[in-house]
Each structure stands twice: as C-alpha cells, then as structure tokens.
C-alpha cells in the first residue's frame, strides 16, 4: 500500500513527534508514504479568515502539485490541513465561479483527482485494521483514555465526510482494537481554541482546563488527540493552565499514532514521546509493564 503524505508545517516543527510516530507505525504495517515535493502551507486560518479565495487556492495548489506528481490519494494527519483540503475541494466542486477563480489564482486547472484521507480513516480500513490486529505485540490492556477529536475532523459533516459529527467513535474503535479502554465523555468534539493560541492564550487556558478536567473526572489516564493544534493547546500549554488556575492537571496528551506504536511494540523514543511538555511517563510505564 502506498499513499501520498502531506505532513503540513506543524508536523515538521511543533509536532514532529506526530510525524515521527505516524511514519514509524506505517513502516511497521508495511504502508509506504511519499511526501509531495516542495509542498506549501495550506494557509490555515489567516488565509481563510482574510479571503475565501486564498483559503481555497493554497490547498488546491498543493492538491495540484500532488496531481502533477502522479499521486491519487493523500493522507493528511494535521486536522487543520485536512479540513482546509476537504473544504477547498468541496467548495470548488460546488461553486464553479470559485473554481474558475482558483484556477486563475494558481495558474493551473486542478482535475480533482486526489482523494483526501485522515490517517484514522486509513487505519480503520478493513484490510489495514486486520494487519494492525495481527501485529499487536503489547496490548494496551488496562489503559483508560479519553479520545479527543476536536473540531475540524468531523465538522462540517457534509465537507469532511468523517464519522459522526457530534459523537465520533473512530479513534475509540481503533484504540479498543488495541486493548485500551476508552471513556464516554462530554468534550470529545469541543473546541480547544485552535489558532487563538498565539493571540488570546487566556481563552485557550480556560478551554484547556475544562477539557482536561472533564476527562480527569471520568477517570481517563491520558488524552488522545489527532491534531497538532489540539496537542499544543492541551499538552504544551497545560503548565500555563496549571499556573493560572492554581491546580494540578497532570494529564498526559498523546497522539493516537503514538499509542498504536506502543501497541506494536515500538519504543517511546521511536515514537517521540520524549518531546511532550507534559510528562507521559505514567502511560509509558503502564503500557510497558
């Protein structure tokens, strides 16, 4: 199996452990990934919030780059990139005027031939799921976690076409396959504040605290995420929330790909668990015990 792989800016920097663990897991499962040459940023919020056309043109430019390089199906782990790609593809399919403007803006016609997938969709394909079940070396038994989906994987549903929009279960099912226990909780698809992180951190800390406290109250040992922005707000800013609210949260936040890797028997180092700002060692020793 071979897929195009669009890491996006975050997986090359602030969330390199997501990149590292996803690549390691794919390698262990025999899935080949190929990064398109010279991709550019999807534009994220500063593009779509200032211009609908720019917000569509930058993702379509990337899709066009992949089309030129003969790629037909791309895996996009960053939920924000995933959302921008899906949204742009959906919009040019629906609005011919926008499609024409985008073509003019990028100086090329994009034939809409590249399918856009999130890794969770990939791991839940029956064939991949079967391989995954076979290769579990270290079941995650006794590990109670809260799967956090955030905003952009499931919303808006007619655009992302991904799982249930209010109560998704794909990550839960995947981790249950690996032996983990996943909890029912209220903040599964609540927003972490995303790109307000750099400008209105006080709001982010409030949202981070609420999300973590709910997971904690229901007995989760860790949060599991599928988005680099969620990870920065929940993991990297967690110490700031603790300082601001004078409370101990101590909630490890892992990427789902890291948990898959642990179940496959890979080491924490191979999965970049040493990169987190909130100490995940309680989880690691629980799995490795």
């Amino acid at each position: 199996m071979k897929f195009a792989y669009f890491p996006g800016c975050s997986l090359h920097s602030t969330s390199s452990e997501y990149d590292k663990s996803f690549r390691a897991v794919c390698a262990a499962l025999g899935i080949e990934l190929e990064e398109p040459k010279k991709w550019i940023c999807c534009g994220t919020t500063p593009a779509h919030a200032t211009s609908r056309l720019l917000g569509a043109a930058l993702p379509v430019k990337n899709l066009r780059i992949m089309e030129e390089q003969g790629m037909t199906e791309v895996v996009v782990p960053c939920a924000a990139c995933f959302s921008r790609f899906k949204c742009a593809d959906h919009d040019i399919g629906k609005d011919p005027q926008l499609a024409a403007d985008v073509a003019q803006a990028i100086g090329a016609e994009y034939g809409r031939t590249v399918k856009i997938r999130h890794p969770l969709e990939l791991f839940l394909r029956e064939d991949v799921r079967a391989i995954l079940r076979q290769k579990v070396a270290r079941p995650l038994a006794g590990l109670k976690v809260a799967c956090y989906y955030g905003c952009l994987l499931t919303r808006p549903p007619e655009v992302t076409q991904f799982d249930d929009t209010e109560y998704p279960m794909s990550m839960d099912l995947l981790l249950r396959d690996l032996g983990a226990e996943t909890i029912d909780w209220a903040y599964k698809v609540e927003c972490c504040g995303a790109s307000l992180s750099l400008t209105n951190s006080d709001i982010i800390l409030d949202l981070t605290r609420k999300i973590i406290l709910d997971a904690k109250a229901r007995g989760a040992l860790a949060l599991v995420v599928a988005c680099p922005l969620c990870h920065v707000n929940l993991d990297s800013r967690q110490f700031q929330a603790e300082e601001k609210y004078q409370t101990r949260l101590e909630m490890p936040v892992l990427f789902f790909s890291q948990l898959i890797g642990l179940a496959l028997g890979l080491s924490g180092k191979e999965l970049g668990t040493d990169k987190h700002l909130t100490d995940p060692s309680a989880i690691l020793s629980a799995v490795q015990a």
Binding site: C151, L152, N200
Partner: peptide
Amino acid sequence: WLCASCETCTT
C-alpha cells in the same frame, strides 16, 4: 475576531 472557526454553529 474571536471566532475560532470550530464550525459548531455551521454544523
């Protein structure tokens, strides 16, 4: 300016 584009309202 504070809208985080989480799309809950739209959905």
